[in-house]
């Protein structure tokens, strides 16, 4: 039997990779993909704890996380298209209208 720690460590690796991607990548679409990776890592943690405790509530929450991720992707990618249309770029370094200087 694989101990739950393995699954939680795997989720931590997945989250760290997604987190590094969000901080390092410039392309807004790839930044969104890395956010999806982080959401999946959170889901894996929920499901690992659900399996460990023998309760299915964690799986129900993971189901809702997937639904919220779908909504987030739809609205987020619409924002990416709107930004590309108005500014002609999707580099997160060049979209800086709200930056404090």
């Amino acid at each position: 039997m694989v101990p739950g720690t393995h699954y939680l460590a795997l989720a931590a690796f997945l989250f760290a990779i997604g987190f590094a991607g969000v901080l390092v990548k410039k392309n807004a679409i790839i930044v969104f993909m890395c956010i999806e990776l982080m959401l999946n890592a959170a889901n894996l943690t929920f499901i690992a704890f659900a399996r460990q405790s023998g309760s299915m509530s964690g799986q129900a929450i993971a189901f809702f996380v997937i639904a919220v991720a779908a909504a987030e992707a739809a609205v987020g990618l619409a924002i990416v298209i709107a930004v590309y249309r108005t500014r002609g770029t999707i580099s997160v370094d060049e979209v800086e209208a709200l930056r404090d200087r």
Binding site: M1, V2, G4, T5, L8, A12, R51, Q52, G54
Partner: peptide
């Protein structure tokens, strides 16, 4: 995680 010790899975 390493400090929290092994987490045995419950039989379901």
């Amino acid at each position: 995680l390493a400090q929290s010790g092994p987490r045995a899975m419950r039989a379901v």
